[in-house]
């Protein structure tokens, strides 16, 4: 495993574009911390995001993992191109000739995906711990570590999304087309969800099984959980809407199955193809 990771990291790290994107990704992740210092004046009153409860334990786990997962597109580009490049440079062929098995090849990519997701998760854990300890109104251990299930969901979401990218890279062979496909697929899911399934009145039931939808179900949007938004909703709608924000078991299972499908399909494609 170490050998495969080592091989893959050399390929990525020596590539300037991939290196810059990876570094940019982690720098942007840490910019989440800068949100804390945002001050703005609204109707003559000073607002500070940090004072709005954004960085309170345990809410911080939810809010920041949600925000951070938006940045995953950066690493998606790295992953798609690391696969597409192997085709365009002809190095996939050469790697196999040099004695890497097709299984090892897919595994080296998958391990990298997991390593990226793990690094992001650990990074988020440390960052949020620091932010929370500085800004949270609560700092009892059981409250601090209460909703850390969001970190698990975040990790799973990244592995799922990157596995999807990896699969597209292998299927389409070109990074631009693979990313285009990802975008088109996003639209297809939206159409399925809001049109096809909606007509059957089973929108939620069916759409939860779609890959991207199941990934976004892992961490639900945190904004309506904020007091300020809740107040607006109550004022407008007359009563408070109750929602379940916690990490659900079902989406975790669905995403795990998708990860398995993507990796196995990638392997099958590679096995069947004449290079």
């Amino acid at each position: 495993m170490i050998r495969l990771l080592h091989i893959e990291f050399q390929k990525i790290w020596k590539n300037r574009a991939s290196r810059i994107l990876t570094i940019a990704y982690f720098i942007l992740l840490s910019f989440v911390a800068l949100l804390a210092s945002i001050n703005f004046k609204f109707i003559g009153i000073d607002f500070r995001l940090a004072d709005m409860g954004l960085f309170n334990f345990p809410f911080i786990w939810h809010f920041n993992t949600y925000m951070a997962s938006i940045l995953k597109l950066f690493l998606a580009i790295v992953i798609v191109s690391m696969m597409a490049n192997e085709y365009s440079y002809g190095t996939l062929k050469q790697n196999l000739i040099d004695g890497l098995s097709k299984k090892e090849f897919i595994l080296s990519k998958f391990y990298t995906v997991v390593a990226f997701a793990l690094a992001s998760t650990v990074f988020m854990f440390v960052l949020n711990l620091i932010l929370g300890l500085n800004f949270s109104s609560y700092n009892e251990a059981d409250i601090i570590f209460k909703d850390t299930s969001y970190l698990v969901a975040y990790f799973l979401k990244l592995v799922g999304f990157f596995s999807f990218c990896l699969f597209l890279g292998i299927l389409v062979k070109r990074s631009a087309f693979a990313l285009g496909f990802l975008f088109v697929w996003n639209i297809v899911e939206a159409i399925l969800k809001w049109n096809v399934f909606a007509k059957l009145n089973k929108s939620e039931t069916f759409s939860q099984f779609l890959p991207l939808e199941s990934m976004s179900n892992l961490i639900r949007e945190p904004f309506t959980r904020l007091n300020i938004i809740k107040n607006i909703e109550t004022t407008v709608g007359g009563e408070a809407i109750s929602r379940d924000y916690s990490v659900q078991f079902i989406p975790c299972i669905i995403v795990s199955i998708w990860i398995l499908i993507f990796i196995i399909l990638s392997y099958k494609i590679l096995q069947k193809r004449d290079l």
Partner: peptide, 12 residues
């Protein structure tokens, strides 16, 4: 073994 054309990572 080498086949057809040399395949290496151009950026390395």
């Amino acid at each position: 073994a080498i086949i057809e054309r040399p395949n290496f990572y151009p950026y390395m």
